[in-house]
């Protein structure tokens, strides 16, 4: 659905994955929602991350499209203009996203009506 202001609602949830997650015959541990108060930021376009998941430099303020805080279930909701955007998770020391495209830029998404809920993962403490 397109709003009168042209913004598109982007919904998603943030999971925290940590500990030993080696797959196998044992039942897999359930993913843990990140819980409330985690900040998710949206930057227009892509960011040249050089395949580094932790962005430590200041974010380009002129490209900040929005920011949301997760609720008790780790869910977030942003209103973004159509087009490419990069969602980052605020973490101590910077912003985190462990997903990249083939060039090493942070993986971006194409904001458009009907966009499926976005799953973000904070897997800094996980081993597989």
């Amino acid at each position: 659905m397109t709003r009168p202001d042209g913004l598109v609602p982007v919904e998603g949830w943030l999971e925290r994955v940590d500990g030993n997650r080696m797959p196998g015959p044992a039942p897999a541990p359930a993913a843990t929602t990140a819980g409330p108060g985690r900040q998710v930021l949206a930057i227009g376009g892509t960011l040249p991350a050089a395949a580094q998941p932790l962005w430590t430099a200041p974010l380009p303020a002129d490209r900040l499209l929005g920011q949301a805080s997760t609720d008790g279930q780790g869910r977030f909701r942003l209103l973004l203009p159509p087009g490419p955007a990069t969602l980052l998770i605020a973490v101590p020391g910077g912003y985190w996203l462990n997903r990249f495209d083939g060039r090493g830029d942070f993986a971006s998404l194409q904001v458009q009506p009907g966009l499926a809920p976005v799953r973000l993962v904070d897997d800094r403490g996980a081993v597989f």
């Binding site: 030993n20 080696m22 797959p23 990249f100 495209d101 996980a126 081993v127 597989f128």
Partner: peptide, 18 residues
Amino acid sequence: IYSTLLANTFGYLSGTSM
């Protein structure tokens, strides 16, 4: 370890699986 992930993305994972 940097390698392929779903949906044409890449990322780091750690573990003896890697």
